[in-house]
Design a protein around this nucleic acid. Structure first.
Lengths: 212, 212
DNA sequence: GAATGTGAACACATTCACAGCT
DNA sequence: AGCTGTGAATGTGTTCACATTC
């Protein structure tokens, strides 16, 4: 496994490949070609070969990629092979609740271990069997539970403050749903899911359609 | 407004600029420089000037960009200046409900006009004052209401089928929350919000941290 | 013969660095 | 003097096209 520089986008596509390969559960054939996988994922075959080549040689000449072995490799590359990532969900509002019932988490080895909120009404109650803790206790609880990741689902105004606490707690990754760019020191992975930006992007392109 | 090719990423950043400029409501100064905006958005000043230059010359030499005028221009470019986009929400599950209570929609001129679901238990009921319609009626209702956009928040297995119906209904854009790549003919804008992919991306980077 | 893996070419995106302006 | 706007240089990501392999 050479340590070449891996494009950002490649990692996202690996998830896509994995998902489609897993959907082929009933498929009897041992091998799948980059062309076939390309048809399923809508990614060019050359792109697929390039993406995989960053991590090794998984294919066999004339045959293609052995499906199940490739699945195993992809899961290992993505870090979701029999490993558990422990998550803090911060914010027990509508979005937080929706995220709690998202099946994809558990399936992929992501476990929400603690929920935090600032609302005294909510603190102490349970959601899906998980206790809602006072956000004030974020740091001690995170450290005790050795949490890997925080999902920020609080109002925009709170997000930056919360993110700094998360960093202080030694958590190494954030998935941020608040419509606010987080300004954090290096050493923490941040991914943003920003609904406003997606909507405005669509709006931009819709407008172009109508004007041209 | 020259019709140069605009990078994908530029449009997303415009949203970011707009949001930060709007946050400066109390700011008394008329002008803001690309450097100052860069500090706020964590984008380089050169990038900001380049991004804006795709759409015109909004700045003034020696002074910077007139904040309020720039806001107006950005809103116009993004297509959210006193215009209403009519949306169908498809899927009245947990995620759908969470999206319904997202303030950002209304603020930006996005209005959820109809909700669709396949569950007979839900059809006919109301959510936030919006009636839940039978998904079977997607096409006639979409056409009558002249909907611009559909938000797909249904289970992965249903997403492709629903998307094809959306296309048939003449809707021109989709925001897809189902963990499934949609395969559609040209002529419809599709943006995916894919939680699994974000999680696996984080997992990938977390793993690297631990291994290196 | 039919696939992979990959150098080389190309396309796209960002940054540099400075002319031009007030 | 201090800003923008932008050619040119650089950096990053994708595609082409083919040598290689069984």
């Amino acid at each position: 496994m050479p340590q070449k520089l891996i494009p950002q986008t490649t990692v996202y596509r690996l998830s896509l490949y994995l998902r489609e390969l897993e959907r082929l559960e009933k498929e009897k054939r041992y091998y799948i070609s980059s062309r076939e996988l390309g048809k399923l994922t809508l990614i060019s075959e050359a792109q697929i070969r390039r993406d995989l080549s960053y991590f090794g040689k998984f294919g066999e000449t004339r045959l293609g990629y052995p499906r199940k072995v490739l699945i195993k490799n992809l899961r290992q590359i993505l870090g979701i092979d029999n490993r558990v990532w422990k998550i803090a969900l911060i914010g027990a509002g509508n979005l937080g609740k929706a995220l709690l019932s998202y099946r994809g988490f558990r399936e992929r080895g992501f476990f929400i271990k603690v929920i935090f909120d600032a609302d005294p009404e909510k603190i102490g109650k349970n959601l899906k069997g998980i206790r809602i803790e006072n956000i004030e206790n974020l740091i001690p609880i995170s450290r005790k539970e050795k949490l890997d990741m925080a999902i920020i689902a609080v109002p925009a105004e709170e997000a930056q403050k919360v993110a700094l606490e998360v960093k202080k707690a030694g958590i190494k990754a954030i998935l941020n749903f608040a419509p606010r760019r987080l300004n954090l020191p290096a050493g923490i992975i941040v991914k943003n899911v920003d609904l406003s930006m997606e909507l405005e992007n669509i709006s931009f392109h819709l407008k172009r359609l109508k004007c041209i």
